[in-house]
Simulated assay, not measured.
Amino acid sequence: MSDATTTKKTATKPKKSTSKKASSKKVPAATTETVDNRAEAKSRFNAALDEAKAGAAALRAEAGERAGAYRAQAKTKSGDLMTEAKNYGNEAKTKAGELAVEGKTKVSDGLSSLGKVVGDTATDIDGRFGEQYGDYARKASRSLQEASAKLDAKSVDEIGEDAREFVRKSPGTAVGIAAIFGFVLARMFSGSRRG
């Protein structure tokens, strides 16, 4: 019986094949082609990547050159504009100085004329209201004439400094005078529009 059991065991075990055909695997031709295609695609991709990098570097260099050119143009234009602005500023200062001198002359002439008119009417005031009021008119006339002479003697810069000093010493009075002057100007211009 022992022989029968041994035979049975050997019959159930599958036999291992020792042939080389079964153990060696052949790579099909389609797989070799796929590997070759992948290598070619990878090499083309790397070439395209290198080309894109070179193009980006060229664009960066061109952008740098253009930015430098634009910067140079902007500096030149800025310098030109600054020079123009300085020229306009100097012209404006000159014109403002001329207008200030002209205005000072007109104010001085106006004060002088007003002083003469008040002085000329002093005799009429004496006759109508009395000598006391005529004397007031003569004093006012002299004050106006003196103010006109002082104004003529001073330069525009000196007048400006005197005005600043007056405002520093008595700002309340300066604000009051400015308000009255503004009111008078507003009335003059609103009256000229109506007429």
Rank of each mutant, 00 (worst) to 15 (best):
I125R: 04
R128I: 10
S108H: 00
N87W: 00
L111H: 02
S78G: 15
T94C: 07
E98M: 06
L81F: 14
T105N: 12
S113Q: 11
S113E: 12
A122F: 05
A92F: 12
T94L: 13
A100L: 09
E91C: 02
V117M: 08
K75M: 07
T121S: 10
Y70K: 10
K116Q: 10
K106Q: 11
N90E: 14
E84A: 12
A100D: 08
S112N: 11
S112A: 14
N90T: 11
A85D: 04
S112D: 12
R71T: 05
D126Q: 06
V107T: 08
L81M: 14
Y88K: 15
K77M: 13
K116E: 11
A100K: 09
R128N: 05
K86Y: 00
K75W: 00
S108N: 03
D120L: 13
A72E: 15
L99Q: 11
A96L: 13
Y70W: 09
G103H: 11
R128E: 10
A85V: 08
V118Q: 01
T94S: 15
A85R: 07
G110D: 07
E84H: 08
A72R: 13
E98W: 06
T105A: 12
G127D: 15
Q73T: 09
V101Y: 04
S113N: 12
Y70P: 01
I125G: 02
K95V: 09
K106A: 10
E98G: 07
G97A: 11
A72K: 14
Q73I: 04
V117Q: 08
D109M: 05
S112K: 09
G119L: 04
K75N: 11
A122Y: 05
S113M: 06
K75S: 08
T105W: 01
K75Y: 06
V118M: 02
K86I: 09
G115P: 01
L81I: 14
K95N: 09
D109E: 13
D80Y: 08
S108Q: 06
L81S: 10
K95W: 02
G97T: 09
L81W: 12
V101W: 01
M82R: 15
D120E: 14
T76G: 11
E91I: 05
S78F: 15
S108T: 06
K77W: 13
A74R: 13
A96T: 10
S112T: 05
V107R: 03
S113F: 06
G110T: 10
